[in-house]
Design a protein around this nucleic acid. Sequence first.
DNA 1: AATGAATGAGCGTTCATTCAT
DNA 2: CATGAATGAACGCTCATTCAT
Lengths: 193, 193, 193, 193
Amino acid sequence: MSPKTKEQFEAIRSQTSTVIKDTALELFAENGFHNTSISQIAKAARVSKGLMYNYFDSKEDLLHDIMMDAMDRGTELMNDHLKEGVDPKDQLLSLVDGVFEWIIGNLSYWKLLAALAFQKDVTSQLKLEILEKSQSYNAIITDLFRQMGKAEPEKEAMLIGALMDGIGMQYMVMPELYPIDEMKELVKKKIIE
Amino acid sequence: MSPKTKEQFEAIRSQTSTVIKDTALELFAENGFHNTSISQIAKAARVSKGLMYNYFDSKEDLLHDIMMDAMDRGTELMNDHLKEGVDPKDQLLSLVDGVFEWIIGNLSYWKLLAALAFQKDVTSQLKLEILEKSQSYNAIITDLFRQMGKAEPEKEAMLIGALMDGIGMQYMVMPELYPIDEMKELVKKKIIE
Amino acid sequence: MSPKTKEQFEAIRSQTSTVIKDTALELFAENGFHNTSISQIAKAARVSKGLMYNYFDSKEDLLHDIMMDAMDRGTELMNDHLKEGVDPKDQLLSLVDGVFEWIIGNLSYWKLLAALAFQKDVTSQLKLEILEKSQSYNAIITDLFRQMGKAEPEKEAMLIGALMDGIGMQYMVMPELYPIDEMKELVKKKIIE
Amino acid sequence: MSPKTKEQFEAIRSQTSTVIKDTALELFAENGFHNTSISQIAKAARVSKGLMYNYFDSKEDLLHDIMMDAMDRGTELMNDHLKEGVDPKDQLLSLVDGVFEWIIGNLSYWKLLAALAFQKDVTSQLKLEILEKSQSYNAIITDLFRQMGKAEPEKEAMLIGALMDGIGMQYMVMPELYPIDEMKELVKKKIIE
DNA sequence: AATGAATGAGCGTTCATTCAT
DNA sequence: CATGAATGAACGCTCATTCAT
């Protein structure tokens, strides 16, 4: 008879919010942001359409939250692979492992990210945050190449960045067929060593 | 007042159809397929909405025709850069030039292609055709690497394919800032030589 | 921890209910009935949405209660200005004072009333009660004019009623600019004397 | 087989647009702007919901067009009753006739106007245009009173303005019962003479 | 007495497509 | 070949109301 406690409400919110975000990510990645309706997400997440707006102000807001979550996971993963005071080459190799791990484990996120990258109608806010993050990765890699004594560390970093984007892209188009592990080893051998 | 000849009709058809396709490609690339309406295209192409359906059965059909046209142009370009009986390494270098030329000169097409590549809402038919085409390029490049005596020509081909996709992708996201020419030289130096 | 007494419960009920009604009146008057949501009222009144329905069966019911309260306050005010056995002209003058006082002091109520008056979406019940009340005022004024010996007391009463409605209306549209006090004196001079 | 001529299209547009506006005005006046849905209007006007947006950019835009039409009719009517070089008192009497004629013949418009006057959510643009128009009427009446040699023409104008607003308001609430013609004569006698 | 998560009908609006001319 | 008025399903979103606690 007594009302629910604050903790109970928070638990409910956290759980429902996660279900909606996970469901939406899958659908966005599969069908595209504009081709996925709020109704579809609600039905797949087994909640009412109206409830969606109890958790997210708008469809764009839902997208934003999803992308931020995934980016945060990516940042954590990167940090796990960046040990201070280690040989820069080893760090770079470890970082490549980290990126591949991230891509393989968050395929839906990457598909969505790639599809959004070329569309100008998505909130610029989101795009800016993503661009910023990607530039910070690029800076780290450039620095590692510099530590390794490479003549043109900026170009090396851009090259490896483009290569990994390309590999990720092809893997996304045909994840079941693409020899991603072999490609990873190839990257390590050809580019870094 | 004299009745139009069959040839005149066909000339009009061909011209109008080209105007529509060119206009649609620009708009699709700029704003995305789902975010571009038939009305917008009709207005920009200075024809009536109804006329669009005289030339294309549906919006998807229009997209399909546009992509096929662009792919045909790409095939022509590739063929121009593939001279039989030439040193395979030179052919490969020439091919790289051809691809960069293609990308830079058909940015709208590539943006659209990239945006569509990850989403299942595009006719599977179209995706299959694109995949097929890309595999044929891959086969050609593999063969050239084999002629060059590389140990693992398939992997080399995949690597260069991924790299060029990645470069294209980054160039598309920021075409005015990206040092595409330097990247081209880098590709030639690092991968082929 | 001791159980609340019946009186305490009733005191809480009365107080909460008053807060909700006062808050709702302000919002209805400011933004219109249809443009004010239950959520807004609940938030502004610092109660939960659910609690609203503990006190009022529906949004319409809340409106009804608000209007009845305001009408009761109006009736009291009128009665204060109607002293039996006084010169009818003085009574009329005093009544005009009362109405102006009522309007100026209950602007929100009058704005809301005016906005609702022309639309059939308000419970007919409410409209009937309001009409009834206004007719009883009219009867009183007619009687006063009759006592003053006017030839056509009904028409005089309607005239003064219309005039006061019109003044009120204009005052509501621009309360800060309208010379309401001067208008009051004008009414007294031109119509009554 | 030949396409419709420009004239045919214009005729269709004009007719359909009028049907929609007339229907919408009735419904807005009856039920209020916010309480009338586009669906209702479309159904009552026997057109599809989508077609509404072929003619009006938005619901607000539809409202704006309706009010402007009615205001234009009002201006015409007023001009018909304002003959230059005539005795100012006769002009005033004629003007009163004009206003009553306008109100009686455009009851829906007046109901809507009154209901909107108190709501702050309607486009300020529209409200400004209405306020402007009403002030221009007030200026004309003030001037006529001045020509008649009244001591305080501004106040006289405000008084008659308020009175006519009030009469209009009461007539709108119960058009079938209200003795509007008698009230008109009363206005003329009490205020002007 | 009190909470706020959850529902679902309905809103204003868009847009691919059809069709009479 | 060409027009644009007309349709209707679907969209993103709002909100009065209910209910388990």
